[in-house]
Nucleic acid binder design. Sequence first.
DNA 1: AGCGTAAATGTTTTT
DNA 2: CATTTACGCT
Length: 981
Amino acid sequence: MPEHSKSSHAPFARNISGQIVDIEQVPRGDACQCFCIQCGGALLARKGEINAHHFSHKPADSGNAGNLTGCVGALESAIHAAAKQLLETEGGLYIPDLIRSKEDVSRTIAGSLVKFGIVEAEKTIFSEEKYIRPDVMASIGDDPLAIEIVVANPVGTDKRNFYKKNGISCVEIDLRSLRDAFKHGESLNWDGLRRLLLEDGGSKEWVFHSRSAELDRQIDEEIERIKALEKTKVKETSFSSGEAFIRQSFQGEMPLIIGKEQSGLLHGLNPEQRAAVELPAQSALILAGAGSGKTRVLTTRIAYLISNGQVSPHGLLAVTFTNKAAKEMVTRLSAMLPINTRGMWIGTFHGLCNRMLRAHHREANLPQTFQILDSGDQLSAIKRLMKAMNVDDEKYPPREMQHFISGNKEQGLRAHEVEAYDPYTRRKIEVFAEYDTQCQREGVVDFSELLLRCYELLARNQALREHYQERFKHILVDEFQDTNPLQYRWLKLLAGQSNALFAVGDDDQSIYAFRGANVGNMQELLRDFHVESVIKLEQNYRSHGNILDAANALIANNRERLGKNLWTDADKGEQIRVYEAGTDVDEAAFIVEEIKQLNREGVHLTEMALLYRSNAQSRVLEHALVSAGLSYRVYGGLRFFERQEIKHALAYLRLMENTDDDNALLRIINFPTRGIGARSIEQLQEAAKQYNTTLWDAAARAGGKITAFVGIIEALRSATKDLPLPEIMEHVLEHSGLVPHYQNETGAKKREAQERLENLNELINSATLFVHENEDDSLTSFLTHASLESGEHQAGDSEDALHLMTVHAAKGLEFHTVFITGVEEGLFPHQNSIDNGDLDEERRLMYVAITRARRRLYLTCAQSRMLHGKTNYSAVSSFLRELPEALLHWITPRFTARKTFDNGRRETESYVSAFGGTPSIPAPPSPKSTWRIGQAVFHQKFGEGVVTDSEGSGNEGRVQVNFKRAGSKWLALEYAKLTPI
DNA sequence: AGCGTAAATGTTTTT
DNA sequence: CATTTACGCT
């Protein structure tokens, strides 16, 4: 960390850095916990009791010599006392990692104050105006980290009086005017500020304060006072921890939140969980089976570290894969500890990388307002590029290109690092390289670029790397088995030599290999971090015994496991219910009946989930649910921010923020139609290519209708310049012509347009919500939110509704009752996986699905299913056969009697008996055929299969059979020896 | 240019 | 089946 260049108190200057005041959630009169950013010291103070010795330090012998620690605060009067201390010691925040650039300094100050809980607290006290007293010192050198800002905390009436009484002059400044002033590119320094205040012309009561000899003297005095106190304390005892120190300070009479909380934290943990939580500060791997309290261990660990004084909330980094998981962690943490979780580094890999890249956009060579491409955007960018490069999209399917590019980035490889032994790959690499250039030119990054760029930033910039390494003493990773090589390298880089990486994962739940996840990272972790303690959490608190036994039996079929067997104290519970329906519609009908019954028995709809392998399956289920009048929510699938009209609206905003974003420009240049046709766009692209500029620049030079378009964007931009986000949104929707466009729809499209209008309205709502929930309410921030959290928050969360989702989306969740639907060979396991011969991941997926259930589990399948407009016939999933017969209860009658199920041979039986007299048989399209479609058959050579089509009749005909092992084949009945089974 | 209709094509899981 | 592309007409 850079020295505080302006301070005359070199050793004390560090004290100024990083105070946190966590005021929220502390009840009046109670003690509150405080932390020091630098050394992680935790201290305690009671409202009104804050004075120098409570607010001091960790003793010099605790390994943090020279670091005086944070100040403390509690609500109301306490914060004023804290503020007093802060100001007396020239207090403020040192926030190097939040500062983006000179231009952005002002916003950073405002944002940080809010983040660190200071302004937040003030808001509750002085609800109208937010004041800060910035004693601003910005010295900006070549080193990005040399940007140093010290801001005092906010000034309220009481504090102003305090200054007056003490003869200290101060500056009062409205955050908004500060922000505005620096919007125009002025650099933030003392002179600039002074000029700004003078220009204000006395509309406010500005009082200036500059560092004076008098103030310096006061500071010296204070330091001496603190030091003296410190000495006496240290002499009396040596403190092994912050807690001991605090106990000592209060001589036992203080009700210790820390002590209470801590024992509360560990309460109810089993020995393994507890061991994991209490591990010393070293790297560790926790193998946590499904339902073993993984999230609990992770959050408790964080709470433990913090309350134990081992680390401050700002000194740790917690990474998850989904926003949902991150949110969950934050929520639980807030419940455990009276701390302000805002500003903590808890988030997804992508979210955290984004945060770092925004903070250091310059070092990362990105524009401040860089936009994020979701996979759809990425694909269209690739298509566009390939067209420009004249790459044959028959030979190089864009999707494959996309996979190639993302895949390599996930391995941490840039185009020039990919090995190529054939011209085909070399060509792909050329596209890859050109794609990156294009993104750079347009100021956009895709998902994997977010990670790679951040990794490279840290790898190349020593100062930054060391800064973050210094800061994040503890790094915690959720779902570690899902990390890809790049993410692992990123973690390694941040962990450095000495930081502790606490990884929680379950190799049996690794279901994201398809997007680059590498379970091998678990072994690498053990090696790279010299992990001595692998703790296995095997007690399951979620499911009844039969469900767990089924899961264990299934997963035992996988090789190369780290080895783990879940057990439970709970009863065996019910058997697993298995139902084979004739068609997907019947399957859905059965499920609906069961749900109704369960609901009558008192199981809430929210406690039930319908899981499926692929999103397409939800359609039939939804249909049945709607007709039955059951309310449900579909998770995943088509997300809010991915809807066409939303994407259009966002494209306008993106283009306003960053005119280089060609993707956004192309999306809206002629939507709503304004007479710019394909030909014009082509010309525009050619012009851009010729002058090597972005489309926007070319458009600015073009004429006619294109000029009009440029005019629209510029008009939007200038009209919304000073508006708050929701109003920007509203203005843009109206004046871009989007809303009028949909309003003018008539006839057949009217209904659809109506829905789109509602969605656009919802977009304004989400902007309003966003402004309320986030301190950084800039447009860029909202756009980032839209790309990274593609609409998780949906209305109706509180409603009692069923959950419909893919198995992937269900990971981490649990329900009383789970229906796993479409348990068919070719669907689950998916055909592609069967073809690739990689059934293990599918099996893990089934394992995840099974272990979601607490009490009741249904496995349902259908003999025939409409898929992509065609009827498919498939056999029961082979996974079903891997489950012990004793655990299963076949609801479909014809299977209950089938004892020989295990050896693969079945008796011939008509379908009719299977469905209790009301069968729904797939009608054979060719009645002449003796072989019914959907009939299970056995072939001498190819094994088991299902008839999927037929031609002709008798011995002259032939049938198509989909064999489990050998795939689909046409067989002539004259020769093929098929046996019905 | 822009619209409408017909044909073709693709389809796992996700930040 | 749902979405994209192709083509032909105004």
